[in-house]
Design a binder for these strands. Structure first.
Lengths: 227, 227
DNA sequence: TATCGGATTAAACAAATGATTAATATGTTT
DNA sequence: AAACATATTAATCATTTGTTTAATCCGATA
């Protein structure tokens, strides 16, 4: 719903009957836009495609979201926030150990990306172009630094259980091994002649393997490297 | 140069004086197109931008390359072939060990991607859309399977030096840890508030670390896991 | 029932964009 | 010098595309 009307709408919100229908149309547009933007990117997506996919009149897109770009910014921001929030929640669970966090991040993201495999390329390629100021208010700058994960990591280093002192490598290796297969899927499937089914099975297998590999990479205690 | 004229040109190739100038213009277009396509993608790149970047008249683009799409296909194919050829050459060197191959692939790709950081996202996001048949003749299907690397890997598994029996995980982890940081650079830099200089220094550090990590992940012999 | 406001629609607009044309320039061949 | 082929240019074309407009629909309210 367009900005000007939003105020009026919110004022009446309680007795509004058509609200479901309104929200439905508004949501249909956003859902269609999300699907297309994520699959084809901003520049390759036409407003007419969005309207058709949503089953609505073209003008309604501008009626509710002002412009293609505003709609896109909204979706890019929401998608990125969702993506980062997952990480943030898992990294800040006070009741899980460092090892458990690794396992949960791995399983959580592999499940998420299996359902939404186009999200990483979408985020990473569109953030490059747009979003100059779009992400400043997100303030992710201290998200990792202030996390429970980071405390536990430093503790583990201090106790000599973990060898690498730069936690960035730890996080980067973990995310690399989880996310990259989805990003490179198309190329990798051609490189080794793999079907979709085999790919998904491989990613399920990696749920178990990645935590083991991470442990082997960063643990100082040889006896633990076997499990 | 357009198809129709190519024949005539090749017939005269020996005494052609304007050939340098011709090739120069043709090359200027391709270079400009490559730079823009790789940075902004197919859909976001205008033929007028390419013409301006190349410093040539708009019509010359169609004169030499027929259409935007033909020009793009050429560049996507060339870029992908270059990228894969690097891997192919390194994986098929008969005079290097498995460990040396890991080191060389790591150093080679980190250097390449430091110079051309946009290439991976470009390839991986554009291959998804175009390229239905563009890559069939590339026949990468057996590239990995028939490589010297694969022979050495199987040998290492047979000798018990390497633990994981599925070589796909080995290759995928290697490529993930090398390539993903470049793909996720923008997001990662925001996540940890990192500057460009720090990023490059980190990637140089990874040249040394990744082969060590790979060795730790996949080696069965505990005494080797320390180095 | 009449009226009002938001939702929806078909039509149109203006700018952008890929491509083409026709003319001209430039250098080569005869 | 004349004829020719290729390279280059400015102008134009036809479509596409994001957006707007004006009219209409529809349910709620008074």
């Amino acid at each position: 719903m367009c900005d000007v009307m939003k105020e009026k709408k919110e004022m009446k919100e309680k007795q509004m009957k058509p609200m479901e229908l309104d929200a439905s149309t508004e949501e249909k547009i956003k859902a269609a836009a999300r699907a297309l933007f994520i699959r084809k990117g901003y520049a390759a997506t036409r407003t007419r495609d969005i309207a058709e996919e949503a089953g609505i009149n073209l003008a309604l897109l501008n009626y509710y979201y002002r412009s293609k770009e505003k709609l896109f910014d909204l979706i890019l921001l929401e998608t990125t926030v969702d993506f980062m929030k997952q990480l943030s929640v898992l990294l800040n669970d006070a009741h899980s150990t460092l090892e458990e966090k690794v396992e949960r991040v791995t399983a959580g993201y592999i499940d998420f990306l299996t359902a939404e495999p186009h999200v990483p390329i979408f985020m990473l390629s569109e953030i490059r172009n747009h979003s100059g100021r779009l992400f400043e208010r997100l303030a992710m700058g201290r998200m990792l630094k202030d996390s429970v994960f980071m405390k536990q990591y430093e503790e583990a280093v201090a106790q000599g259980r973990v060898t690498e002192t730069n936690p960035l490598h730890f996080v980067m290796n973990l995310l690399s091994m989880i996310i990259f297969p989805f990003v490179g899927k198309e190329l990798l499937q051609r490189l080794v002649a793999m079907q979709d089914g085999a790919f998904e099975r491989m990613m399920q297998e990696r749920k178990r393997l990645i935590p083991v590999w991470i442990k082997m990479m960063f643990s100082r205690n040889e006896s633990e490297q076997i499990l």
